[in-house]
Amino acid sequence: MIWDLHTHLSGFDGATPREKMAELIRFADRLEIERVIVFMGYPFVYDPTPEQLREQNDQVLEALQPWHPRALGFVYLSPKHLEFSLREFDRCVRDGPMVGVKLWVAVKAHDERLDPIVERAAKLDAAIFQHTWTKVMGNLPGESDPWDVVALSRRHPEVPIICGHTGGNWQLGVRALRDARDVSADLAGSDPTAGLTEMAYRELGAERIIWGSDAGGRSYGSQLAKVTGADIPESAKKLILGGNLKRMLTPILRAKGVPL
């Protein structure tokens, strides 16, 4: 069972969200990916306005419609537009089909403006996904690193949070997450550098690692190799490839009456 935590419409051929989604599924089929989480529309915008957020979420909602619940969605929000983001959460998650929140690079995760979003998501057991990277040349102004996610997690104990990309520079990212027990590591969207999954397994344990691809910017295959090619037990691979994400989403999927 393979569930992909991390896909985008961007990077797929097609003139409409539905056409792009059909491509996303066509490639996923070839690698037997059972379910996909989709977030953010196109084009990517670092610091989106409320109108842009709504437009991108509408694209995802449109794309999901023919494929739900094989395809699930996270709502793209920005803490810079907090009141709007809370309303958008209600529209897309509380009253819509989405099951999580995606936070990208508008505001760093340590910022207290994230708190109301996290609290609202936690109430509904919605997943919380925060992009992170640690670039040697420096991050974007609002781009989080794993330490920012750890700071956020400390303010919200017991709330599961996913650290997107494990910081990209995963040797740093895994270390940063070691003691943050409620934070899971997303494997997606970095080069398939050997040793990533082994280190995450050794330091975090299999239960805190979630596989994602970052398709269409990344190849499903290059990213899947991080697990299929890793020197870790088969039981751990099963958790990473789908078991952990399914466990995390089960409460909200059940609440929404979505078949598992």
Binding site: P192, S219, Y220, A225, T228, G229, A230
Partner: peptide, 18 residues
């Protein structure tokens, strides 16, 4: 690009393309 990259990556990238 093994062993720096997981060898499976190149192979699965081909498989993905059908």
């Amino acid at each position: 690009h093994a062993p720096l990259y997981y060898w499976d990556a190149a192979s699965l990238k081909i498989q993905e393309c059908g």
